[in-house]
Design a protein around this nucleic acid. Structure first.
Length: 425
DNA sequence: TCTGGGGTCCTAGGACCC
DNA sequence: TCTGGGGTCCTAGGACCC
């Protein structure tokens, strides 16, 4: 039994999404910014050519942006999520066994496709995705996931490959590993790359010559598994269904420095509500809620403060009202006046399916009522968008709101007119 | 003025138990 | 001087991913 995987990766995904709906951007440098218009998180090839790096703070490249007429966009995750769905839908036409690995990457199990012309087939996939969605993609095909990653990277880099690389022949695999720098290997981050280079391992090929014991000792079983994968032994299976999340976090930098408890409380309540909605989305409840706050770590003049507080709730919940209640208690425990706060966040953990909750005899919450209310709120949000209906503690002040000065329209979703509510219930 | 956000897995070491 | 030993659970921290 020989395995075969394809990794399909969208090129410069967020930038490409913006281009789909505004073709005048084609051929021009485009960047997409993180929340709060903070950092560059996606770049078109033209923007890369200008030397703009991933993670560059926007304010530091503003001159270059103006001078070189770079088009900058605030991130529009609703749009990108929607485009991602379209790409994944298209890919699943080619094999029922797909793993949506991230918003812009998908593994395809080509299991026993060895008999077909993999090169033509891959090109067919690539052309179809672009035709149906407008998003350009690259494909790497190989016997293991880690090798498919290698193939994909080279497919993008090499002009000859032009976006498709099939690595099944041992000689080609060896050449590919030789051409792959160790820090470009999937699973080798900054620390391991430095460590390996210190041990004279500079390429993926040199890594495959290391002994398994040595790798296991210095890089845990994860490294040992990677080693096998690069040598052609498949250890990582396709994961078609994603398991429910074990922790859910909602955190944001504020659009401005905040000091008062009320402002931070309002922001934090909104993050708590978002966590609750995510929990309901995967049909689970959480027992622990953690709140953290921090000042601006880049500001040398301001006094710095970071703290977090975890509260164990009496009964696992996914109700906006309860989570906001306990998040506020946690915040109260750590908030100190006279600091300039820049960020807060809410993390929920000890997550269990919503049908396995341990109830408490002394419980004072009417859980049935909460659940019905949340159900209605979710329906309203799905239909009319965020913040149309919310818990009072979430406030209307929104002085903490994110900066988003360059947002494109939500091309793929249209906000409905304000409702006549009766048919929702 | 302005520096992202949300996840996963693994290990070492301490606490605790018998 | 010499101070049991083995198992399990939990947590913090470190590595990684996009």
């Amino acid at each position: 039994m020989t395995s075969l995987f394809a990794l399909c990766d969208c090129n410069n995904f967020y930038a490409s999404c913006e281009r789909v709906f505004d073709p005048s951007l084609n051929g021009k440098p485009v960047v997409v910014l993180s929340n709060n218009d903070g950092c560059v998180i996606a770049r078109s090839n033209e923007a890369k050519a200008l030397g703009i790096q991933m993670g560059d703070p926007f304010f530091k490249i503003r001159n270059l942006v103006e001078h070189s007429h770079v088009k900058a966009f605030s991130s529009n995750y609703v749009l990108y999520g929607d485009m991602s769905d379209r790409v994944m839908q298209t890919l699943s036409q080619f094999t029922p066994h797909v793993e949506v690995y991230s918003i812009d990457e998908c593994f395809l199990d080509l299991g026993d496709f060895y008999d077909i012309d993999l090169f033509s087939y891959s090109w067919e996939i690539k052309k179809t995705v672009t035709k149906w969605t407008g998003i350009p993609v690259s494909l790497g095909v190989a016997p293991t996931k880690a090798l498919a990653k290698v193939a994909n990277k080279l497919a993008k880099k090499s002009a000859k490959a032009n976006g498709v690389l099939v690595l099944t022949d041992p000689f080609h695999i060896k050449k590919a590993l030789e051409a792959t720098k160790i820090e470009d290997v999937w699973g080798i981050g900054g620390q391991y790359a430095k460590f390996l280079r210190n041990h004279q391992i500079h390429t993926a090929l040199e890594f495959t010559n290391a002994s398994e014991n040595w790798v296991r000792k210095n890089m845990t079983v994860v490294g040992a598994r990677l080693l096998k994968e690069l040598k052609g032994e498949s250890c990582l299976e396709l994961e078609e269904v994603n398991p429910p999340k074990k922790g859910i976090c909602t955190s944001r930098s504020f659009g401005a420095k905040l000091t008062t408890f009320e402002d931070i409380q309002e922001a934090t309540a909104n993050y708590a509500a978002k966590c609750a909605r995510k929990l309901r989305g995967q049909k689970s409840c959480a027992r622990l809620v953690t709140v953290f706050i921090q000042t601006n770590r880049f500001s040398e003049n301001d006094r710095q403060y970071y703290n977090s507080k975890t509260i164990c709730m009496p009964v696992a919940t996914n109700s906006d009202i309860e989570l906001i209640h306990y998040a506020t208690l946690a915040l109260r425990a750590i908030y100190k006046p006279n600091y300039y706060y820049k960020k807060s966040g809410v993390i929920v953990t000890e997550i269990i399916p919503d049908n396995q909750i341990q109830f408490d005899l002394l419980d004072t919450v009417d859980r049935d009522k909460h659940s019905k209310l949340m159900n209605v709120m979710d329906k309203l949000t799905d239909r009319f968008g965020r913040s149309k209906v919310q818990v009072a503690a979430q406030g209307t002040n929104k002085s903490w709101i994110l900066k988003s000065d360059y947002k494109s329209p939500c091309y793929t979703t249209r906000m409905a007119e304000l409702p006549t509510v009766h048919n929702l219930f």
